[in-house]
Design a protein around this nucleic acid. Sequence first.
DNA 1: CTGTTAGCGCATTCAA
DNA 2: TTGAATGCGCTAACAG
Lengths: 365, 365
Amino acid sequence: MARVVTIRTVAERAGCSIATVSRVINGSARTSPEVEARVRAAVQELGFRPSEIGRSLKTLRTRTLGVVIPSLTNPVFALSVSGMEDGARQRRHTLLLTTTDYDPTREPEMVETLVAQNVAGLVLTVTNADSNPSLDLLEAEGIPYVLVYNEPTRPDRAAVCVDNAGATRALTEAMIADGHRRIVYLGGRFASSDRSRRRYLGYVTAMEGAGLPPEPAVELDYLGDAEGHARALAALFRDRHHPTAALCSNDLLAISVAGALRKLGLEVPGDVSVAGFDGISLGSLITPALATIATPNRRMGERAVEKLFEMIEQGEPPSIEHLDYTIRPGGTLASAPGGTAEAREQHPPCAAYQTVPPSSSPTSD
Amino acid sequence: MARVVTIRTVAERAGCSIATVSRVINGSARTSPEVEARVRAAVQELGFRPSEIGRSLKTLRTRTLGVVIPSLTNPVFALSVSGMEDGARQRRHTLLLTTTDYDPTREPEMVETLVAQNVAGLVLTVTNADSNPSLDLLEAEGIPYVLVYNEPTRPDRAAVCVDNAGATRALTEAMIADGHRRIVYLGGRFASSDRSRRRYLGYVTAMEGAGLPPEPAVELDYLGDAEGHARALAALFRDRHHPTAALCSNDLLAISVAGALRKLGLEVPGDVSVAGFDGISLGSLITPALATIATPNRRMGERAVEKLFEMIEQGEPPSIEHLDYTIRPGGTLASAPGGTAEAREQHPPCAAYQTVPPSSSPTSD
DNA sequence: CTGTTAGCGCATTCAA
DNA sequence: TTGAATGCGCTAACAG
């Protein structure tokens, strides 16, 4: 498809040089009003649209941002991408979107694809933010990037996230205050989610803080595998002395778990309380509403892009930014079947149902 | 950020010309095994990754597909984009994603942005597929594109969709068979959704076919405006003789409507049956489950990309492809409060609960 | 204020 | 089989 009208065509039509056309289009230098008018007229008539490729080849940077996320089907990521798009459009950039389907081996592939496209920067959610060849590559090449959701231990990696450990800790403490003693943590595989690891950490901290023995994490395959979840839960809840609360590392998992529990003949929250993490709107639509930790998903994507531009344009050094989260109460959470009223009065769970600014919960690692 | 290692660097290291390097990399011509080995070694050592930009400038086409959709927050579109990504990745392409937020005036803007990026083709969901300057532009420029969800009247526009009118018609007929007589259609604004218009058409056809007077369409602002929906419904259902069934042009709207009805003190489906259109999984998770027309959302995106490549690579002419839809039963649908048992026996609704191949429902326009 | 010119990284034609 | 040379569309440095 030969490009019909180039900057040269416009120059001829306007009776000037291509340099002048470029100046008019980009406003990169002053031009006389007459010439400018002629150029604009020519652009109009010819329907000229400058090629981003030609521009990019010269300037060695594009107006695109690369995005790498696990999946679009999880509303959490769809929302964050939505926020990224807003942020990008404000700066006249577009998103080059790729997904890994939760497969870590696909991360390098996607990152290399994006780098080959000379993206101005990247926004990504990876499985492991601390030890990650793709991020190493980006740093080696000097290509700016910002992580979303990931919460790196290394402070030299740019990220926009919530205090994952602090949030689960707060939620676990609320459960304990509600009289729960045997609480189980269900999460994605640790190998493929540093978030799941950090969230478990918060759970452990809360349990130990209350003098309760933390249960080992139950690692489940990600979403969609309802059967697998059901099997794992059957083993866990067969016992008469089963846990009275299930803390899930994300909302979709929590919804799946609640469904599986009901199929086992257990009532939610009568027999088992369930809570999630993410705050997708779906959680509020089901009955009973899912208790969860609501994170500012769209805002996280938008802020990540803002941060990326700060790094690109103002050379800001990478840093980790924590955004607020909210513990959102819901009908899936109730007092423990055997819980005492006193315990509840002592630690009214409502105290936790507030937006938590990042500064107030500097969870240790 | 000066590019450090280019094809020239590799050529020097391998002791050959850049032409040879190019040949090795692209396998575009035969080279001696020794030279090839030296080149590959150099590529390895230097970590050379050919610039897509350089390549594109030369070939005048990129390995990216432009995508224009209304929003990512509606799971329907997130799913279809997910399918597009799969299709694109199989052909070693990436997606340049843009959204219009249901604002028709932003369509040309997005399309022009993508065209300026020299995308190989576009996949888009627009407000109006028949009279649309952006599509005219693409045709004028000879840039291939495929519509998704849109169902153009003009047969010369490429599209992957379902038989919207046929589907709503079938669903409406099922409602009528269930004894409903006053059925109301609630949809997005006709001005901003040709799908909403076509779906209404199917409703009208079914009503008239049964000798019932079709109600005027109730056009609602898109999603998120729960208050607006509540107000509109309050007016509609104030009367004692209110409709017994609400046909909604999409699932998110249907869920919002069901909620609003309950707030008005009406039971779903006891007083009013509700049905949606899309088949998002959310609908099956709520209680009662939402009756809907399930469309193959992910597959539609994937098929659109396949079709796009057929047009790009094999010069296939544009055409409209109808994919199967399924009427999915759900607890939001019940017999009309005053419905007779005979009516139900005469037209068992189950007959409609099957996958409908496009050929079997050639709805007239 | 404007024009000329030199590449940006690469694929490709034409010679050798 | 290989190399030299050209140009894709554009920006920017330099001259005028």
